[in-house]
């Protein structure tokens, strides 16, 4: 009854605690600490850690960087969409932007090389969801995020937008091709 009555003991905080609760709280605490230390551990020994490199920017400035990148390294045009295909040198800075409703441009990368991928949005929040790898990043307007990415599989990969961005959200796709080197 006493869960909704005042405690039987006026000084309830001095009542000894049962063995069972102490043991469980101890086990739970150890597990919590293990989970906590897993995150710094992975920063040291794991290979999937999001960089925290980011810059404040704006649509105009970021758009210029992307256009310069496309102008320099464009190698073709995707037929279905007319989207430029860009083949940057291995290990270079590469750019992609999200806008209503496309991921621009299409990137042509080499397997096993590490690229500095710049991501930014021209308008609203977008979600960079690389499929079928399943890496998901938030792309926020006003910010340019730089991550080091190393494609370790060859093939055709799709960027799905997974942050709601209006009525055409479901048509917002991008492509990254990775070829064997």
């Amino acid at each position: 009854m006493s869960s909704f009555l005042p405690p039987a003991d006026r000084i309830w905080w001095n009542v000894p605690v049962g063995k069972q609760e102490i043991i469980w709280a101890g086990i739970a605490l150890v597990w919590c600490l293990i989970m906590f230390f897993m995150m710094p551990y992975w920063h040291v020994y794991g290979k999937q850690n999001l960089s925290t490199e980011a810059y404040q920017t704006n649509a105009e400035k970021y758009g210029e960087s992307v256009e310069a990148f496309v102008a320099e390294y464009q190698t073709g045009v995707e037929e279905q969409s007319g989207m430029p295909i860009v083949t940057p040198p291995a290990g270079s800075d590469i750019y992609m932007l999200g806008r209503l409703w496309q991921w621009y441009p299409i990137l042509n990368l080499e397997k096993g090389e590490t690229y500095r991928l710049h991501l930014g949005s021209m308008d609203w929040n977008h979600g960079f969801s690389l499929q079928p790898v399943n890496i998901n990043l938030q792309v926020v307007p006003g910010y340019e995020m730089v991550i080091n990415v190393t494609p370790d599989q060859a093939g055709e990969f799709t960027v799905v937008c997974n942050e709601y961005c209006g009525i055409g959200h479901h048509t917002m796709l991008g492509k990254i091709y990775v070829k064997e080197n």
Binding site: Q102, S129, P132, H169, H170, L173
Partner: peptide, 22 residues
């Protein structure tokens, strides 16, 4: 876990310039 997105109207991406299939 297979990457299907939340808040998304169409997992067939009807009308998109590019295509993708889950």
């Amino acid at each position: 876990t297979l990457g299907v997105s939340r808040r998304h109207w169409d997992m067939d991406f009807t009308g998109a310039a590019l295509s993708f299939e889950y």
